[in-house]
Amino acid sequence: METLGIGLHFEDAPLGLTFRTIGRTVTEADIVGFINCTGMTEVLFTNLEFLKEESDIKGRLAPAALVYCFAEGLLVQATMQHTGYAFLNMELDVKGPVVAGDTIHVECEVIESRRSKKRPNRGLVRTKNSIRKQDGTVVMEYTPLRMMKARTTG
Rank of each mutant, 00 (worst) to 15 (best):
E107V: 12
A64G: 15
R20P: 03
I22H: 11
G23C: 06
Q81V: 14
N89Y: 01
V98S: 02
V139S: 04
D135G: 08
G73L: 08
R122C: 14
G154S: 07
A86V: 05
G7E: 11
D135F: 07
R119N: 11
M90P: 00
A64N: 14
G136M: 02
T27A: 00
V43F: 01
A29P: 09
G7I: 14
P14H: 00
G123P: 06
T127N: 00
M80G: 14
T103C: 12
Q134G: 09
Y68H: 15
L48E: 12
E112G: 06
Q77H: 13
L88F: 08
V32N: 07
D30N: 10
A78G: 13
I57P: 05
F10C: 05
A100G: 14
C69A: 15
C108D: 08
P97L: 05
F45W: 08
D30R: 07
T21F: 01
Y142D: 04
G154M: 09
V106I: 13
P144E: 08
I6Q: 09
Q134E: 14
P14T: 03
V98H: 05
M147C: 03
F19Y: 10
V125R: 01
D56C: 07
V94C: 07
Q134T: 14
G154V: 01
V76P: 09
K117Y: 05
N47E: 00
G5D: 10
E109I: 00
M40K: 13
K128V: 03
L8W: 04
F34L: 08
D135A: 12
L66Q: 07
R20D: 11
R122E: 12
A64V: 09
A150G: 07
E109Y: 00
V125T: 10
T18S: 11
N47I: 04
R24E: 09
E49Y: 02
D30A: 06
D56P: 03
S55R: 05
S55A: 06
A65H: 06
F19K: 01
M1C: 12
L44N: 10
G123I: 07
G5M: 13
M80L: 15
L124Q: 10
G33C: 12
T25D: 01
L8H: 14
K128A: 06
V67D: 03
T41F: 09
I6M: 12
A29Y: 03
I131P: 00
E49T: 10
E42I: 08
R122Y: 10
G7L: 15
V98F: 04
E49M: 03
V138H: 02
L92T: 09
M80S: 15
R146S: 03
T46C: 06
K52T: 09
N89W: 01
T127L: 06
L51Y: 01
E54G: 03
I31W: 03
L88T: 08
D12E: 12
M147W: 01
I31A: 05
M40W: 14
R151F: 00
Y142M: 03
E141C: 09
D135Y: 13
G16F: 01
T25S: 00
K118W: 02
L92K: 07
G84K: 07
G39M: 13
F87N: 08
K52Q: 03
F34Y: 15
K128T: 04
G33I: 10
K95V: 04
S130C: 08
G7R: 15
L17E: 05
F19E: 02
R146H: 07
F19R: 11
T18L: 04
G154F: 02
T46V: 15
P63R: 11
F87H: 11
C69F: 07
T21Y: 00
L75E: 12
G154W: 02
A71Y: 08
N89K: 13
V43N: 09
